[in-house]
Design a protein around this nucleic acid. Structure first.
Lengths: 138, 138
DNA sequence: CTTGACTCCGTACCATGATACGGGGTTTAG
DNA sequence: CTAAACCCCGTATCATGGTACGGAGTCAAG
């Protein structure tokens, strides 16, 4: 039966709840599969799709964005050019997140160092300032 | 009046909604300031605090985590050692996020390259596989 | 053919992070 | 003194991303 998973099997295999799969379908994130009788039957590659969604979410994409990324990979009627554009957009978003996180890390390291130097009560330590140096106006 | 902002002034200055500030106070994320009569009066540095919360959130921390980070900076009764520990924990979390984002970026770049080579319909392109190579079991 | 496991669907509910509303009190400028 | 502008508080509502429930249909083994 490698070509057909019930929703329960799919859920187990991709480590999510059955309800979550139904939820994704209602939201249009996951394409509804063909039904055999009244029951959904999923091709095996849906496991990869769900894992992809979960991975995307872990990396800070919303469910909707995860769906967009997924559909880039899946829509065979789209041209490579279209895909490229959206993909590069996402790459830039990721780069920005990385950059911001690095700044945040630096701020925290400054805080850490600022404490390492002396084992004083924190009141002696200009911490908040330490944090805020790179605070940007938006 | 550099030492006293009403909630409205604070909200304007830190680019959030008045309700958001009240919400943070209800949740214990932001310490309630002294009241002058019935009205909250905030020291000027609350602007920095709120900005800090917002910055943390942008970087993928929950409100609760943002509050924890903030309180690291603010609690003068905590010892540097305690702070150091929590701070380093957060640094590791950030490092992990950066690492994951870099992997995601690589995956997206592989997808992009895979499209760049040929301007074919995507159906010719083994995209989903391209994405999933680093998919990890959890 | 029955029984148990699984599925169907709709609806309700949960947490998080806000945002809005409404009836009242206060404060300040004219 | 009065009216606008602001603040108080509680409560309701919203979006996101699920999770749970319950009554009914279905499928597969014995």
């Amino acid at each position: 039966m490698k070509e057909s998973l019930t929703i329960g099997k799919l859920a187990t295999a991709s480590h999510v709840n059955v309800e979550t799969i139904r939820f994704y379908e209602r939201k249009g994130i996951l394409k509804q599969p063909k039904k055999v009788g009244a029951f959904r039957h999923y091709p095996h590659h849906y496991i990869a799709r769900i894992k992809f969604i979960k991975r995307s979410q872990e990396l800070g994409f919303t469910l909707k964005e995860a769906g967009e990324l997924l559909s880039l990979s899946v829509k065979s009627q789209s041209k490579c050019g279209d895909v490229l554009e959206k993909t590069e957009e996402k790459i830039h978003e990721i780069e920005k997140k990385i950059k911001d996180l690095k700044e945040m890390k630096k701020s925290l390291e400054r805080l850490a160092n600022c404490c390492e130097d002396r084992s004083l009560p924190l009141s002696e330590c200009p911490v908040l300032e330490c944090f805020m140096v790179k605070g940007k106006e938006k």
